[in-house]
Computed example of a mutant assay.
Amino acid sequence: MNVTEYIASGILESYVMGAVSDQERREVECLSSIYPDIRHELDQLSEALESYALLHSVEPPASVKDKLLKQLDFEKPEEKENDPIIRPMPVDMTTESTTTGLAFRTTWAVAASVGLLLLLFSFFLLSQLRTNQKTLAATRTTNETLQAEMRKLRDNQNQTSQALALLRQPGLRTIELQGNEKAPQGTMLVFWNTQTHQVAVDVRSLPALPANKQYQLWSMVDGKPVDAGVFEATNGNALLQRLNRSINRADAFAVTIENRGGSPTPTLSTLLALATVNT
């Protein structure tokens, strides 16, 4: 930067006279702090301006001072005898401090009590919520159990109604089967309708079987066994067990033990009962 040209530009005179913009003022102040020549020139201009002002100053007349003092009333106002004198009351700082501390402790105690009550109430609500959830779960379980029992009772009722309808139909034949030496206490009834060809059994007493085994009924036609369906060792809650086979002819009925689901041919070694159909 050419300092000489900057000083000769007249910007410093304008700065001293206060005729520069904010940006120019900041520029002059910044450069004067960097360049000593600019700082020196700026100081000289300031001193010259001050000397010029003092040289051409005019002292005002003495009458102006008197007029100003008369217009300004600096006299102390007179106190009236009857005006009461108000003096501040002394303040006991110890009492005030004690009162403030007591108030703070009281406020804190109240806030702590409220917080404790809210916390206890929250625990109470949480406990009630958990209790209600357990009650709801137990109620739901009970409801599901009742619905299952109702469905079971409805199914049993339907089976009973169907069994009674079967027993009331004309053409029904009843065959009693007694267990042999493999099931001496075994006894059951076979209901066969010669017109509708439906078959049902009423198990009175038969030995329990493993889960993978079932009893199977056979109708004997001209000495040949015909699959009449499988059944369980007990009737359960049903009156009868209806079999899913249609039997057109039967000279006799026999019972064997087979794998669950039945067998196309009887296992003679597991034969438990055999009874002929009376004509």
Rank of each mutant, 00 (worst) to 15 (best):
N82P: 01
N158K: 11
L272T: 12
I85L: 09
T145Y: 06
A208D: 15
G10D: 10
R249Y: 07
G10T: 10
V114P: 02
N193M: 14
I38E: 00
Q23H: 04
A183S: 14
L136P: 10
A53K: 10
S32A: 15
V16T: 10
Q128P: 09
S113A: 15
Y215C: 01
V190E: 00
H56K: 12
K67I: 14
R249G: 02
S97R: 06
T234K: 08
T187W: 06
K65S: 13
E47T: 15
P36V: 05
A103D: 12
T187Y: 07
T279E: 12
L12W: 14
Q157R: 11
E5P: 00
A233I: 07
T94A: 12
L166N: 04
Q185G: 07
N248H: 01
L116E: 01
L209Q: 06
T194N: 08
E181H: 12
Y215H: 11
E149Q: 08
T135D: 03
L42P: 03
K134G: 04
H197R: 05
A233S: 15
L117Y: 14
E13K: 05
S9I: 11
N143K: 04
T267S: 13
I11A: 00
F121P: 02
T270E: 05
P90N: 09
A111D: 06
P207E: 05
T174G: 06
G115V: 08
A252N: 03
F253E: 01
V28T: 13
T267A: 13
V199W: 01
T107I: 08
S32N: 04
G229K: 13
D66N: 12
T100N: 12
A148D: 05
I86A: 07
A252C: 03
T160G: 11
I257Q: 01
